[in-house]
């Protein structure tokens, strides 16, 4: 799968941009948190597209963001 770039995103309508980012995020999150992947992806899609692109390029940043999201999610569900 080729990397998603800002210029690729810019060619798509805003709604589709989130979709493209969501597909990438979901497939990275799923192996870590299968049961929460959809919700974590939904949370991360609230972040600015440019920041999500940075996360997709930086596995360590993404992982810490995922853990942050899981913490928030668990607190929210508690």
């Amino acid at each position: 799968q080729e990397p998603l770039t800002a210029s690729m995103l810019a060619k798509a309508p805003p709604q589709e941009q989130k979709q493209m980012l969501g597909e990438r995020l979901y497939h990275l999150i799923y192996p870590l948190h299968p049961s929460l992947a959809g919700k974590i992806t939904g949370m991360l899609l609230e972040i600015d597209n440019s920041e999500v692109l940075l996360l997709l390029e930086s596995p360590a940043s993404l992982r810490s963001k995922i853990e942050e999201a899981v913490t928030v999610l668990q607190a929210h569900q508690a």
Partner: peptide, 22 residues
């Protein structure tokens, strides 16, 4: 939207509606 349904859940292959419904 209601706080109980937050966060919106992403499903691969399903068009993302996200926060547009709020």
């Amino acid at each position: 939207g209601s706080s109980i349904s937050w966060p919106p859940e992403f499903h691969p292959g399903v068009p993302w509606k996200g926060l547009q419904n709020i």
